[in-house]
Amino acid sequence: MSTPGRPEGEGTPVHATVQQAPLRPGTAPALQYVLRLGDTCLIHAQRLAEWCGRAPVLEEDIALANIALDLLGQARVLLSHAAVLDGQGHDEDALAFWRDEHDFRNLTLVELPRGDFADAVVRNLLLSTWLKAIWAGLKASADATLAGLAHKAIKEAAYHQRHAADWAVRLGRGTAESAARLAAALQRAWPYTAEMFTADAVDDAAQQAGLGPRGCDLLPAWLDEIAAVIDDAGTAMPVLGAFRSTGRLGRHSEHLGRLLCEMQHLPRSHPGAVW
């Protein structure tokens, strides 16, 4: 990664100073709001990239890598912007590679182990539908960088959503085995969807400042779109229990730490390395 979100995106040094120790971003609500979105895109991309070389068919290998690449591009703009909002002179690379687990703000759903192909399809469907709604809200953001990105990213999210919905229906209407896998993957992912729509102070502040939408306001439209696909796939809608995940508050599952070990290994072992 280097510097896409700022003027002069090429030719600038990767780091003005070489980061050598873990960093902690500030706690301002606007910064937290952007980190939540940026980290969700980044960690989702990292997990999806694990499918490269493992997908059931070559076309899907390419598709999942393409989707991961789009998400990584979105994460770069968001984390570059977060670094500006944070004002500590860091950049996207420092935020991605030098924060520890408790300073990541992604939804827990994206850090869960990649599971089987049905898990990948379900996760992509749930997240792309949610991201599409987020980007739709961000198009009117008072923050010009977020609004600019939203106009681009919403098209990418819609394309990802169509692909995931297509696969959900194919699995649901395929063999007894594929339908059972889809239903099981939905059951596994569903408890983690509540986090997308839980109201809190960061979301409230973002809405009041005109920065972006609150997750809780996106639930009805999200549920309508997901229900249409699940219905088409011939599967039942899961029921939400009392469990609430807390990744966007920095309290993660045991899986994020291991993901970060892999993702951060090289820059932490060789600070300032470029390739």
Binding site: R6, P7, E8, G9, E10, A147, K152
Partner: peptide
């Protein structure tokens, strides 16, 4: 993206077009 921006800068510099700034525009 970055390869393209580098190539554009080189082409403009080779044409001797003086001081320049290249900016990404998402919207």
């Amino acid at each position: 993206t970055e390869t393209i921006m580098r190539a554009m800068r080189q082409a403009l510099e080779a044409a001797g077009l003086g001081p320049m700034q290249l900016s990404l525009k998402l919207s």
